[in-house]
């Protein structure tokens, strides 16, 4: 047990943090795309699209992220597809969170009042125009708070990628734990770093939410 000041540990940990941020950013990008596609698929009028979206969402929500990661990393090579750890990590993080995000997108679209759809029909908008110009712009703001939670889960799941040897924050912490035996200091710093990123993410998302809802009343009826 040692209580030496942990400043010397910061540089390597910050390098790991950089990797963690890359993983998170890549995962979020993929997550948003998949959430949008699958969420729209779930409310689509075309049955095969709906089935496809449902199968994707159920599979990735029904199994754990770590199992998915192992499957992508250890099983895919059997099929001749070897992914670099970093790529496998981003793929799994995005696919896993995208399934949760799809539910957020679906919920937000369905939460837009029915009257909006009727007004659009009465004005002659096509179903596609109604979705993209009337429903989605209103749904986006109500998507942000639950999406923020999905992103934070993604950030937390990114730690799992260390077990397939991506040199992220968790991986670096494990290495230095074994080297320096300053376990308490290392894991405390790591916890604080993850927490800081999570707080940053959630603050950023609420800022975005405030910006987007400025001047507009998206609740429907004015109080």
């Amino acid at each position: 047990m040692s209580f030496a000041p942990p400043f010397d540990l910061l540089p390597p940990l910050l390098v790991g943090l950089g990797k963690t941020l890359q993983l998170t950013a890549g995962g979020i990008l993929l997550c948003v795309l998949l959430a949008l596609f699958a969420g729209l698929g779930k409310v689509s009028g075309i049955p095969p699209l709906r089935w496809l979206a449902n199968i994707y969402v159920e599979i990735f929500r029904g199994t754990s992220a770590l199992v998915q990661l192992f499957w992508f990393f250890f099983v895919l090579p059997f099929f001749g597809v070897s992914l670099e750890p970093m790529l496998a990590g981003i793929l799994v993080l995005g696919l896993n969170s995208g399934a949760y995000g799809a539910e957020v997108v679906r919920g937000a679209i369905q939460a837009v009042s029915h009257g909006q759809k009727e007004a659009a029909t009465a004005l002659g908008f096509t179903p596609r125009q109604t979705l993209w110009r009337i429903l989605l712009p209103q749904a986006v703001v109500s998507m942000l708070p639950p999406m923020s939670n999905v992103f934070i889960e993604l950030l937390k799941n990114s730690a799992l990628v260390s077990v397939i040897s991506v040199h992220d924050l968790t991986f670096v912490a494990q290495i230095h734990r074994a080297d320096s035996l300053r376990t308490t200091a290392i894991f405390s710093i790591v916890l604080v770093l993850y927490f800081a990123v999570a707080q940053g993410l959630s603050r950023g998302m609420s800022f975005l939410e405030k910006r987007l809802s400025r001047g507009r009343d998206l609740g429907g009826v004015k109080a």
Binding site: A119, A122, L123, R133, I134, Q138, L218, V221
Partner: peptide
């Protein structure tokens, strides 16, 4: 049609509410 609960598009200005359908449709 005009509705009991107005059903204006809350994310558009008044002007945009009136011009959107003529432009798009």
């Amino acid at each position: 049609m005009v509705f009991q609960h107005f059903n204006l598009f809350p994310h558009m200005t008044v002007l945009r509410n009136v011009t959107e359908a003529p432009v798009r449709v």
